[in-house]
Amino acid sequence: MATKKKSAVEATTEANENAIALHETEGLSQGQIIRRRFFRHKPAVISLIALVFITLFVYSASGIHLGTAKHPITIPGWWPHSMTEIQDSVFCKGSIGCPGIAHPFGQDPIGHDYFALVMRGAEQSIMVMLVVGFIGGLLGTVIGAVSGYFRGWVDAVLMRFTDFIITIPSIIIGAVIGFKFGNLGVVALAVYLGFFSWTGLARLVRGEFLTLREREFVDAARVAGASNVRIIFKHILPNAMGVIIVSVTLMLAGAILLETALSYIGFGVQSPDVSLGTLISNYQDSFTISPWLFYWPGVLIISIALCVNFIGDGLRDAFDPRQRRRISRKDLLRATFAKRK
């Protein structure tokens, strides 16, 4: 008897939950639903705000540096000290160059302003992240889409090519590339890394296209006379967007960790330029004397990667139609009462 009663309650609860879910999506476009779902994911929204803030802060502080070492294109930032400028070290509490008003992140043993160094490193890391994300995302999507849509020998050739690239562990290819091209500047490094980081995405997109191309709406489009290009970009791609965006976000977080790791073992960004990885590698031994030299680069890497990961999680939830929001007791009560009225 008791169990029967309980299941009746559960049934009403489920009906109410469905009602809420339906009510929330009524009269909204797909994009609006996704945006709503994303903005309800609090950690993701906080991370998005934090990431935008970090990016703006870093780029405005350190300025924008493009071009090669010989032909630099520089737009200066608001921070007065540059990373090459050497100043007298501030002495304090048994160590030199500890953080203070003039140098919020302290100074390195030579007398460089550490804030300027860290900002420059973060600028590099964000640049790598964006470039790898763009190139990897573009290549992965196009190769996956073409391979999944056309199937046959195109698919076979492209997928064997993908297998080639997958066989080469990313750290190995990164090290070979970074060691050779690290001195060309971080953008070049990022471009090369991007050329080797699209494989996972390509496989996912291919899988998605293989299923989607069999759906009725694709047939309908073809009957209506749409070209292959139009079907791929206008009909299938928007439906595969969820997979692509989520996977690219994860690629971004992976890229920043790969770049810093490569720079740490000396195969990435080369001196005199700095990266968050080289900073940690340089000052890991001075941990006991001047820990700020070690902490700040790490804190920046972690916060950027953490934000990107949380945004990815939020996007995954937003794009996944099976994902049900946890419905709070308040909403449930409201729905129950609304029905009674």
Partner: peptide, 14 residues
């Protein structure tokens, strides 16, 4: 787990 995803191993190791 997200935090661990984002940790650079060389930093943790130190």
């Amino acid at each position: 787990s997200f935090l661990m995803f984002s940790l650079p191993i060389f930093w943790v190791a130190v």
